[in-house]
Computed example of a mutant assay.
Amino acid sequence: MTLHCTICTREYWEDELGRQACKPCTRRADSLLTALAGPNGLYARLSTVLAPGSRNAGPAVSGSRTAPLPVRLEPLSLLARGGIITVLQSWLVDWHETLGWRHPRWEGDLQHQLDQAVAALRANLEWAASSHPAFDEFAGELARYTAACRAQVDDERPARRIGVTCPCGTVLRITIDTPGARCPGCETQYGHAEVLQLPMAERAAA
């Protein structure tokens, strides 16, 4: 029986025993999915920042030998096939296969397909958080892609990473929002609060 959340690693309450993810982490995944979908969602808003100069990208450089690209690649890579929509559809296919269901079918344009995938994932989220063995991987990918979309449309810089030291001596690179981390040196799994309590890594001498 699983005794702790595979995402934040905190110990379960009695009514959470046997789940893959605790209820707060499940609600967080649901809120991230909700933020992506709809006409005002993060995915739809990516199309508003495709044009060069549509967000603060710094001063233009004169004397360039090549013409600027007609679109910005960062939001385009998230918006196009192969970006976040493909990630969500791949997870939905995986869930269908695990449940023994037919593969889902995609209809309409990419926005419609994104909304379909989000709706289906949300409908089955409680089952996945309770029973799917790779729910932590799904939650991790969802968090990374949602943060990437938000960084483009909200013009946010990526969260600053800091180094903390595991007792084994390995330095972990984390952010203030890191839900948890596994040390590659000794395989110790840290939850959010635990990893933030690790000592700061000493900076390398110049």
Rank of each mutant, 00 (worst) to 15 (best):
147 A>C: 05
113 Q>K: 05
86 T>M: 01
49 V>G: 04
4 H>Q: 09
39 P>W: 14
141 E>F: 10
171 V>F: 02
164 V>R: 01
79 L>I: 05
149 C>E: 08
154 D>G: 14
155 D>Q: 10
114 L>M: 09
58 G>Q: 05
96 H>E: 00
59 P>H: 08
143 A>K: 07
68 P>F: 00
46 L>H: 10
137 E>V: 12
178 T>A: 07
62 S>K: 03
142 L>W: 13
29 A>Q: 00
110 L>H: 15
36 L>V: 02
14 E>G: 06
206 A>Y: 06
178 T>I: 13
182 R>Q: 07
66 T>N: 03
198 L>K: 02
126 E>H: 09
105 R>Q: 12
78 L>W: 11
15 D>E: 08
163 G>E: 11
138 F>P: 01
178 T>H: 11
189 Q>C: 06
78 L>H: 14
60 A>C: 01
150 R>Y: 03
181 A>G: 04
36 L>Y: 02
83 G>K: 08
179 P>M: 05
75 P>I: 01
187 E>S: 13
115 D>V: 00
172 L>V: 00
162 I>A: 08
187 E>G: 13
60 A>M: 00
27 R>C: 12
159 A>S: 09
100 G>S: 07
180 G>N: 02
163 G>R: 08
160 R>D: 10
105 R>P: 12
44 A>V: 11
11 E>H: 07
119 A>C: 04
94 D>W: 02
134 A>N: 12
36 L>G: 01
136 D>L: 06
121 L>D: 05
4 H>A: 04
73 L>V: 05
184 P>N: 02
132 H>N: 09
77 S>D: 13
149 C>W: 12
68 P>D: 01
46 L>G: 05
111 Q>D: 15
165 T>Y: 02
